[in-house]
Design a protein around this nucleic acid. Structure first.
Length: 460
RNA sequence: GGCUCGGUGGCAGAGUGGUUAUGUAGGGGCCUGCAAAGCCUUGCACAGCGGUUCGAUUCCGCUCCGAGCCUCCA
């Protein structure tokens, strides 16, 4: 049983064999920090977090690097709009990003490099590209000359002759070839910039990931990942930069596996500013528990598009509640966590088939109530160990379901009403009893008559 | 125009050359004074048309529909 991953490079599911079996290395292209992260950013973060967790079940040492891009035209624009200093914007949104992802159970990467800490290395790479005749300077810009790299298009499977040049973006007049992309561009005052052999300026997009991945992991490393939209042009251009000056001519000499997650749509439409349907994690976190959002993000296979709707959040929320109820039922059973059963591990290792894992989790849960003691131990172990990799079921079931709110709520008042209701029930005054139930319900308190007496929980 | 990926029950979503995916919602029932939770039970789902096959939702072809990308994007 070993890990298989869909490799964008080959378009096929491949057996995962690390370059160094003692040390798995993975780089995920992280966010540009100029705004709150949206649910699409979160999907990438959660999927890669899951991938790292799964890798850790198979390999002793895993190093996960995910960068912060903190110099970019979008940041400059945000600064112009708000009047806020660039550095203040980037440090603020870096923190917000990390906090918001943390709420989704995403662990910090082992290394989180920042672009602005690597300007020197970027300049050095540009110089090497110029020296190798792969890039040229024009009007204060340095451009990568795409026709000079024969493998261009190999990842995105694009034949340049068949594409419509500049179909969506105007071609700058100083480009030798319409596909040439910027490595360095001038930064007229007061824009942020650095001194370079080509004048005061700033790096183009793509460069930071070439530099930081090599610096933090060495080449070749195992997995280079990101959202599906990064395949072209971002990853293609990274490959061009990295693979045209070293002995690493092929993308697999840069990273062996190229791993991409699908898009998130919102209520059937593409998320976009113009439609105004961007779902920010920061806002979602206020409304839903992190595990609910995380499970919803994992409810479809990572490669598939995910249609983000209120309805699926609700469905996943109910599913989690039920799983927690099963755990509550099993709360007097103590277990020692191990890896999930082979059947579940197989699904993890089969290109992270999370929907199938979730189905198996539910099947386990289904058999809980009528199971023998031994079986219950196994069920609980399996639920918790699977949850641990998925990043769910890590809360205390009582707390999750709202039973242990005594210190936070006005419990004396609640207890008084419950006693009053029980009095009414004893005297068969069911009208009064039901009125009290409704009163409590209005306060968000659900009461349940059990054989151990009446208990209550906060229902929202 | 080019490239890529899809179309599965009300919704979400795996999977398979012949057997119940799973969840959620709905129907019926048990339990309950009423609830909640739980339990039992239930639904002619595989876009269309051809082909291969003893047999196709699964393989092949075509058609229709949808999504993404073609230098802003996760």
């Amino acid at each position: 049983m070993s890990l298989q991953l869909q490799n964008t490079l080959s378009g096929k599911k491949e057996l995962f064999e690390p370059v160094d079996p003692e040390h798995v290395r993975i780089y995920a292209c992280g966010p540009t920090v100029y705004n709150y992260a949206h649910i699409g950013n979160a999907r990438m973060a959660v999927v890669n977090d899951l991938l790292v967790r799964v890798l850790k079940t198979q390999f002793k040492k895993v190093t996960y690097v995910s960068n912060i891009t903190d110099i970019d035209d979008k940041i400059i624009e945000a600064s112009k709009e708000t009047g806020e200093e660039i550095y203040s914007i980037t440090s603020k949104y870096t923190d917000i990003y990390n906090n918001d992802m943390s709420a989704l159970g995403v662990k910090l990467p082992d290394i989180q490099p920042r672009a602005t800490d690597h300007i020197k290395e970027m300049i050095a790479l540009i110089q090497k590209l110029i020296d190798a005749n792969k890039a040229y300077e024009k009007n204060g810009h340095v451009l990568f000359h795409v026709p000079s790299f024969e493998n261009y298009g190999i990842l995105s499977k694009r034949n340049r002759d068949e594409q419509i040049a500049g179909s969506r973006v105007e071609v700058a007049p100083f480009k030798k070839d319409p596909a040439d992309f910027v490595l360095w561009k001038p930064s007229p005052s007061p824009l942020p910039g650095w001194n370079s052999p080509w004048g005061f300026g700033r790096p183009g997009w793509h460069l930071e990931c070439s530099v930081m991945s090599e610096k933090s992991l060495g080449l070749p490393f195992d997995i280079h990942s990101g959202g599906i939209d990064l395949v072209f042009p971002h990853h293609e251009n990274e490959i061009a930069q990295t693979c045209s000056i070293s002995k690493h001519k092929e993308p697999k000499d840069f990273a062996t596996y190229w791993f991409h997650n699908g898009f998130v749509n919102v209520e059937g439409e593409k998320m976009s500013k113009s439609i105004g349907n961007i779902r920010l994690v920061h806002e979602l976190n206020k409304k839903y528990k992190g595990e609910v959002l995380r499970l919803t993000l994992l409810s479809a296979h990572y490669k598939q598009p995910l249609n983000w709707t209120e309805e699926i959040i609700e469905q996943n929320s109910k599913m989690l509640d039920r799983l927690y109820r099963v755990l509550l039922e099993l709360s007097d059973i103590s277990v020692k966590l191990e890896l999930p059963t082979d059947s579940i591990m197989e699904s993890f290792l089969d290109d992270l088939n999370t929907p199938k894992i979730i189905a198996k989790l539910n099947e386990e849960a289904n058999s809980a109530s009528s199971a023998s003691k031994d079986r219950k131990v196994k069920i609980k172990k399996n639920l918790l160990s699977t949850g641990k990799i998925l990043g769910i079921l890590e809360d205390d079931p009582e707390n999750w379901l709202g039973y242990s709110q005594k210190s936070k709520e006005n419990s004396e008042e609640i207890e008084r009403l419950i006693n009053q209701r029980n009095e009414a029930r004893r005297s068969k005054n069911f009208n009064l009893a039901d009125t009290i139930r409704d009163t409590l319900k209005d306060k968000g308190i659900e009461i349940e008559d059990t054989d151990k007496g009446t208990i209550w929980r906060k229902s929202r």
